[in-house]
Nucleic acid binder design. Sequence first.
DNA 1: AGGTATAAGTGATATTTGTCAATAAAAAAC
DNA 2: GTTTTTTATTGACAAATATCACTTATACCT
Lengths: 231, 231
Amino acid sequence: MANERLINSCENCIVAWKNFKNLSRSEIRLLNDNRYEATFKPGEIILKQGSPSSNAVFLATGMAKIYIEGLDNKSFILGIGTPSQLIIGPGVNVHARQSYSVSALTVVRACFISFEVINQLIRQNAEFAFGMIEDLSVKSLALQSKLVSLTQKKMPGRLAEAILFFADEVYKSDLFDIILSRQELGEMTNMAKESVVRILKELETSGVVKSDCSKIQILDKEKLRLISERG
Amino acid sequence: MANERLINSCENCIVAWKNFKNLSRSEIRLLNDNRYEATFKPGEIILKQGSPSSNAVFLATGMAKIYIEGLDNKSFILGIGTPSQLIIGPGVNVHARQSYSVSALTVVRACFISFEVINQLIRQNAEFAFGMIEDLSVKSLALQSKLVSLTQKKMPGRLAEAILFFADEVYKSDLFDIILSRQELGEMTNMAKESVVRILKELETSGVVKSDCSKIQILDKEKLRLISERG
DNA sequence: AGGTATAAGTGATATTTGTCAATAAAAAAC
DNA sequence: GTTTTTTATTGACAAATATCACTTATACCT
């Protein structure tokens, strides 16, 4: 976890969060003066569930795993943090504690921004406040849809959904090297790692995807989408 | 759906939403001048998933069922709306459509408040904005915890959790007449209605609850809590 | 009150999915 | 490059849970 500043300014930071666009020059300066940059190695924990939340984490580069540590040491992977995402757990505004953990999947460069600063910006800039509300709402919607998927879809539907998520949201390509293990893919879709392997093979047999270890290729996207939607 | 104003003013309304406390006298007047009151009979739909969302719904009296219409006509009950709750789906701030349906379980008196007014209040009153953010966050946290319960707990744990929810959050008593059918209880805990009946009987056999049709009585709350937590 | 719709309860059976044990394949460490 | 450790894969089996068919209550209607 090095501490040199590698990003010289928020203003120049090409990967800024959508909502930062609502800030004035001086507000960005405030942000820039109050951020702390850190680099994480794969596997390192960036935020720990249950710990006090005093900072938001802005992901500059790399990928991270956002997950809830549930019962019996079982994790549930909520999503994948990708560059220019601002990670703020909902616990922050309720009991000032992290409601999930975040760990680096690749080398990650992140900026920590104090909530005092964020709250000040919310207070003084209504558009920024709306942006925060929108961001929270988008995440809530995603949680709702996840809830439906997990309760109403069968394993093939859930796995198909996860594969589409990686193709469309994470890698933006139908051929990719998935960064998650089968175990983790299971933690994301609520299935045992053995089931992930089996369903993946089923999808391969029916000619929908091709998977060889970490490499996954979507062959018939329409069919995959159908499987994902039908459940 | 009658239209007479039965609540003469928001100012006097004893059941106001927590966040309305952050409003000034004149802001409450604005609210009061822009609300529309309606009464619903049991079963009637108050908000319909997918329809344009132009109003928030403030529940003045009665109880409502908040549910997602999922795949294959299967519903998932997100929660129970009780008096003094402001119902705003997360879809509002994203695509201006309802992300869930709400229907009356009892006779419901509700006020409809236009989002234009709410957004104006967010813009001019930072504390109110923080209140909105907190409200959204609380709901997000609840969704997260529901996600973990549904994926990691077995049926007895999920049903125990639901019973505790009704006792502690809805009826505030360990003996109550549950308003949901077994079918609906299943839609809330992701189990078949037959399973609800069976697990309920199991809980009765082990002396944890007593249930006779709609009447449910918690006999051993500690044990019920244990079942709920252990999963 | 009697008849009809709706919900609750029950048992048998089928489906889905997880667990266990073992092996094969990759990746990491020396 | 070989050893060690982790991850992927496989098959057999077990557990959890749904579905179906049916009976019994309960509520609803005229």
